[in-house]
C-alpha cells in the first residue's frame, strides 16, 4: 500500500482503536498492524503527538510480566477529533470513488 495513504489514515485507525478500549503501546501497534502494514516504530511518535495535543490521556497500570504499562485513553477532544477525521475520510472516499466511477463509465 502507498506509504502516504497509510500515513494519512494511521491517525484515524489509532484513534478508533483506543476509542474501543484503552490500550498500551505495544498492544496498539499490534492492533494497527492488523489493519495496515506499517512500520511499528512510527506509531509511538504518533501516540506521543496525539497525547501532546490532548486527544489521549495516559496512565500506568501494573502488569503481571515486566514493568508497568502505559495505557492510552481517548479524551472527549479525542472523540470529537476522531469523528471529524472519520467524516473527512468518508467524504474523501466517496468523492474519490465517484470520481473514479465516473471516469471509468465516461
Amino acid at each position: 500500500m502507498n506509504a502516504q495513504f497509510k500515513k494519512g489514515v494511521l491517525e484515524l485507525i489509532v484513534l478508533e482503536s483506543v476509542r474501543q478500549r484503552d490500550m498500551y503501546g505495544y498492544e496498539l501497534v499490534e492492533e494497527v498492524s492488523k489493519v495496515v502494514d506499517v512500520n511499528e516504530g512510527t506509531i509511538y511518535p504518533l501516540l506521543k503527538r496525539l497525547t501532546n495535543e490532548h486527544y489521549f490521556e495516559t496512565y500506568l497500570r501494573e502488569s503481571t510480566e515486566g514493568p508497568p504499562r502505559k495505557y492510552y485513553h481517548l479524551t472527549a477532544a479525542g472523540v470529537l477529533y476522531r469523528d471529524s477525521l472519520e467524516e473527512e475520510w468518508n467524504e474523501l472516499t466517496e468523492k474519490v470513488g465517484s470520481f473514479l466511477k465516473e471516469s471509468q463509465h465516461g
Binding site: N39, E40, G41, T42, Y44, P45, L46, K48, R49, N52
Partner: peptide, 16 residues
C-alpha cells in the same frame, strides 16, 4: 522492524 534509525528519529522529532 523499526527500519532506519535516522528516519525513525526524524519521525519522532516531527511529532514534537
Amino acid at each position: 522492524d523499526f527500519g532506519s534509525l535516522n528516519k525513525l528519529a526524524a519521525d519522532i522529532l516531527e511529532a514534537y
